[in-house]
Write a protein that binds this DNA or RNA. Structure first.
Lengths: 251, 251
DNA sequence: CGGTATTTTGAGTATCGTCAAGGCCAGTGG
DNA sequence: CCACTGGCCTTGACGATACTCAAAATACCG
């Protein structure tokens, strides 16, 4: 066979129609998006977008974990959220980024060039509507995370983190696995980052893991792999009834 | 003079063009919005929107303070945010409300009936764009508030609350007053609500006020009126450099 | 297998939560 | 007008939790 038949083997081509996040968009819009889209890969611990910077692109995560981080003047950083497969990141419009976006693991992302993307958004009601819905989801998730942070005990916040992880990334990146009725969670970040995310210290996070383990709620196999032994108790620890209605929890 | 000349003295008429939040919208869109708008007043401690409910309207606050609250099954509530003059509230589209909206003080709001409002939004790109920007602001503010909650000490979270109050509501509702170089803040909620908002207990909030007062940073005149004596130290306590870039702080 | 970084554990101190008591203010009724 | 009352705020005392510093144990990487 000389000359293939399918689409050209353009290494920069992005097939958006296969991605869950873009499901429902019209083929023509997807085609237009694909023209301003470029796949990129970054190693772990890389700054994709600095703080107070107007990046050249708007991003979509295909694989890997990133953290949203507020950098203080003294160099220390405060993690304010994670970005995972299927999430989008980066400020819309002229806005400067309020947070830095850094890779935790190696990441594979799609870049949408800002200028063309925003131009397309002003032309396409469909895209603007799409972004509005993404924003609403983001807002809901941020509010949900706020509820986790409002827990007073570290064990409660840790439990909340694990629950949120299960709910948001149930079928993502092999983060959560239902293994014959046992729930296994891959903790995607270091204890240090987790401490920052939960608003506490590394030692307290470690003690919280130990405390939940001693109560038989979880069983940490390695620092990055946790088996949940009692989902009900975990939910209760995470704030109980609250989490029953968390965005995205169905069933 | 028999028969007035100006607009009809319709008591239900809303003059949106005078409201800061609607600045920039085209006259025709404002006119359309005015037709589906109705002014309402509620006494303090009233539930405007219950949890898990699809309200009949979308709201805009003209005067007063409301709280967003998550109600648990056991009847206790967790406050997740405040809504003040110029803010909008209520879920868009079919979404059920994730939080209850309750008045703290007597409030004067504008109702926009959901059906017509959403219909107008799908017709008017301008309105959809407007709502998208409102959502982005909301998201930024929620992230800012998250930073406040990530502070470990109650005094720091209280300082953060006061700073956020100054920044967001600088020229609203007489909440903040620059009195001859002295800054006076009206605390719009009870200690009990404040404790819930900060993720702590009433007693700790009270102690935090006392601690900041003893250090000369603030001077509580009444429980609901605080004079800030050292803005710099207050900012530092609130998280220092972080708050320097908080959304809306300019200059 | 060794070296390094990360994680966990330990001990002492600071902060917070809990329970209890007291103070302040507004509204009520004598 | 004043005492009474109830709600809210503040303060005190004590136990629980978290932070700090230090050291040990474990995991990770070549």
């Amino acid at each position: 066979m000389t000359g293939s038949i399918g689409p050209p083997a353009d290494k920069d081509h992005c097939d958006l129609s296969k991605l869950e996040a873009f499901r429902g968009l019209s083929p023509s819009l997807i085609a237009e998006l694909e023209t301003i889209c470029r796949p990129m890969t970054y190693p772990a611990e890389t700054t994709l977008i600095g703080m107070e910077e107007t990046p050249e692109y708007f991003g979509y995560v295909r694989r890997g974990i990133l953290r949203m981080q507020r950098i203080h003047l003294d160099g220390t950083g405060q993690i304010v959220g994670l970005v995972a497969e299927g999430d989008v990141f980066g400020p819309l419009f002229e806005g400067i980024s309020e947070v830095a976006i850094e890779s935790v693991t190696e990441v594979s992302v799609l870049h949408f060039r800002r200028g063309p993307f925003e131009a397309l958004m002003s032309r396409s009601v469909e895209l603007e509507h799409f972004m509005l819905q993404k924003l609403m989801i983001d807002l809901d998730r941020t509010r949900d995370w706020m509820l986790v942070l409002l827990n007073r005990k570290v064990t409660e916040r840790l439990a909340g983190f694990l629950v949120v992880l299960c709910i948001r990334y149930a079928n993502v990146d092999h983060l959560v696995r239902w293994d014959d009725g046992r729930l296994e969670i891959r903790v995607p970040i270091s204890r240090c980052d987790l401490a920052s995310l939960l608003g506490t210290r590394v030692e307290s996070v470690s003690r919280a893991f130990s405390a939940l383990a001693k109560r038989g709620i979880i069983h940490p196999k390695t620092p990055y792999l946790v088996e949940v032994r009692d989902v009900r108790q975990l939910l209760e620890e995470a704030g109980g009834e609250i989490m029953g209605t968390v965005t995205g929890l169905r069933g």
